[in-house]
Design a protein around this nucleic acid. Structure first.
Lengths: 131, 131
DNA sequence: TTGGTCCTACGAAGGTCTTAGTATTAAATG
DNA sequence: CATTTAATACTAAGACCTTCGTAGGACCAA
């Protein structure tokens, strides 16, 4: 087993890049670079390196178009969100999602409207199950 | 401004240690080391180093008892949970807690009972506000 | 063909994180 | 008092992360 232990999670910069790819669907080094936050000043070669590494880690796939690589997410944002929440639940909460939601819901600066939205979400989900 | 930018979040190992301190309320190097997961094999000096660094970063405070330091969390688990969720919401979701809860709630392996618990939580919270 | 432009590949510097060994000091034991 | 034990402080190795410079190749314009 010579396999370099695959790291499951994106690093800070990788997440930054992946977020753009998720939004665009796919993109070249140039595309991603152009979409980064205004203040963000990153050399072209840095961006290229980051995407190359992300491909090594199998977070993205690439296809050559002319002389240029077009990168595409290898995993959906939804799936990554779930994976991340699950990990957080295990590491910082008690492993059940309930306590995580409780923490969210009990936060002072959570608007009443947001709470209602969440309840609506739940109601929908629960009646679905009844069917 | 020579201030070394304070890192807001615990690293992997720091979280591991902090979790024990949160559970125990406080503890020495030896205490924490003894509480770590069974398979976890860490040198005493490693644990001591980690706690010393955590104190530098102001995640814990210490008080000398005899010749030994007793470490105590400098921030509550609740507060850290909130901070972490907020950060995650901004980085991986759309910045509102609603979408995060939605992702949780829509996960297939969320039991009906858990859903009911969450709804109960919400109901309690919403009627509280009405008072 | 020669020079500029744009791409990829690679290497390296500087930072942080994790781990543990060594040195030193203080307490306990006989 | 000498020796063993247990704690802290420091240093350093190795890994990974972030960033960028340099080199090399392809393409295009004059």
């Amino acid at each position: 087993m010579r396999q370099k232990k695959k790291s499951e999670f994106l690093t800070e910069v990788e997440l930054e890049f992946m977020t753009e790819l998720w939004a665009m669907g796919q993109g070249t080094v140039r595309d991603v670079l152009d979409q980064l936050a205004p203040g963000r000043d990153l050399a072209y070669t840095s961006a290229a390196t980051i995407l190359r590494i992300m491909e090594q880690k199998e977070f993205v796939t690439s296809a050559k178009q002319g002389k240029t690589f077009v990168y595409k997410p290898a995993l959906a944002k939804d799936a990554y969100q779930s994976k991340t929440l699950n990990d957080l639940s295990n590491k910082l909460f008690d492993g059940t999602p309930v306590s995580m939601v409780a923490r969210l819901v009990n936060d002072k600066d959570m608007s009443e409207q947001a709470l209602e939205e969440i309840r609506a979400l739940l109601d929908r989900r629960l009646t679905e199950n009844d069917r």
